[in-house]
Amino acid sequence: MNNEVNIGSTMTSEDSVLYEQVGEHIAVVTLNRPQARNAINPEVAQALHRIREQIDADERIRVAILTGSGTGVFCAGADLKAVTTGRAGASGLSTEGGGFAGFVKARRAKPWIAAVRGKAYGGGFELVLACDLAVAGQSAQFALPEAKIGVLAAAGGAFRIAQLLPRALANEILVTGNAISAGRAYDLGLLNRVVDDEEVLAEALRLAADIVKNAPLSVKASLDIVRAAASPGEDAMWQINDEWAQRIVHSEDAKEGPRAFLEKRAPRWAGR
């Protein structure tokens, strides 16, 4: 396969998540809720979980690209309406074995490339951090703003950002909740490429094409080693993460934050 990759061989749809096979070996997975800023609800979590498992089981697919529909938002994270009004609450946005969005905890056998246009906030940024490589448009922004609504970046964001960045920078991103630009994210080593917004998917496909030229077993071995080196003691990290997540999700502030956000007012924090 050369670097000029044409989109279009096979398209299937699960409504909220689209799956497309490009050529013989590349899959493009698209979060498809532009009316809700591609936020994760139970339907998205279940669909992405199924598609992820399908990709792992399909020997033809060697690389997957995760992107979002529309141009303004890659993914806004958790759908707060689903969290506050859904029967399952926040737990409905996770799957067994996959974690948040059916993705962030999964032990994937193949490389995933995040292709980001627009904002990747909260769980959206955590999806990017869970991928192996990332391409972003010039206008992309990244944030872990959970502290602003009284919750925690509990889908791996809190410890993955600490693994990737110096402590002071990780602390700033987590405790201020402020966004960083694509250029800043690239300078910090969080992205592989920053390109014009219109070129994001094409650049991700070119990167995928370079990967599929190589021996699949060598790619898998390399990924396993890099993941192990980058995330020593990940099981222990998830344990601490999940303990704090349970404590916070039952706090008064965790109920007040999303409620204030939906009511478009400043939250009244209780500190408990």
Rank of each mutant, 00 (worst) to 15 (best):
K213D: 13
E53H: 09
R60F: 10
S218E: 13
Q35K: 11
L169C: 09
A229S: 12
V22R: 06
F261L: 15
D79W: 00
A245Y: 07
A27V: 03
C75A: 14
G233W: 02
A162E: 14
E59L: 11
R247G: 10
Y19L: 14
A270C: 11
A236T: 14
E126Q: 15
A209F: 02
E234K: 06
A168W: 08
G157T: 11
L93P: 12
L129C: 09
S181L: 07
I248Y: 02
G86H: 00
I161P: 00
Y19E: 13
A229M: 12
E126K: 01
I173D: 02
V175I: 14
S222P: 02
W238Q: 04
S231N: 15
K110L: 12
R272C: 11
G77S: 05
G97C: 09
V219K: 03
V28N: 08
F100S: 00
Y19M: 11
V219Y: 05
K220G: 08
A228D: 13
A155L: 02
D58V: 04
E199V: 04
V22C: 08
V175L: 11
G137T: 04
R108H: 12
E20A: 12
V28G: 11
G23M: 10
K264A: 12
P111T: 01
Q21Y: 03
R247H: 09
T95N: 01
R60G: 14
P267W: 04
F125C: 13
V249W: 12
S69L: 10
G23C: 06
G137A: 07
E199I: 06
E263N: 13
I149P: 06
I161C: 04
A185T: 13
A147V: 15
A270P: 01
G177R: 04
P34K: 01
T176D: 05
I51A: 03
A185N: 12
V83H: 00
I40R: 01
L223Q: 08
G150Q: 09
D197W: 03
R37G: 02
V73C: 15
A39K: 01
D56L: 01
T95E: 02
A47E: 07
A147G: 08
V28H: 09
R206C: 06
E203D: 12
A57L: 07
P42K: 00
V219I: 15
P166V: 12
L223F: 05
F159A: 02
Q138F: 07
L80H: 08
A106V: 08
R272Y: 09
V135P: 01
H25W: 05
I240T: 14
F100N: 01
A36L: 11
R184K: 13
A270V: 14
A236I: 15
G150M: 09
R265T: 14
L152I: 15
V200P: 00
N171E: 15
K110E: 07
A106Q: 04
D242F: 05
H250A: 11
T10C: 10
I113V: 06
H49C: 08
P216G: 06
L48P: 11
R265M: 02
A120Y: 00
M11N: 07
G156H: 05
K110G: 08
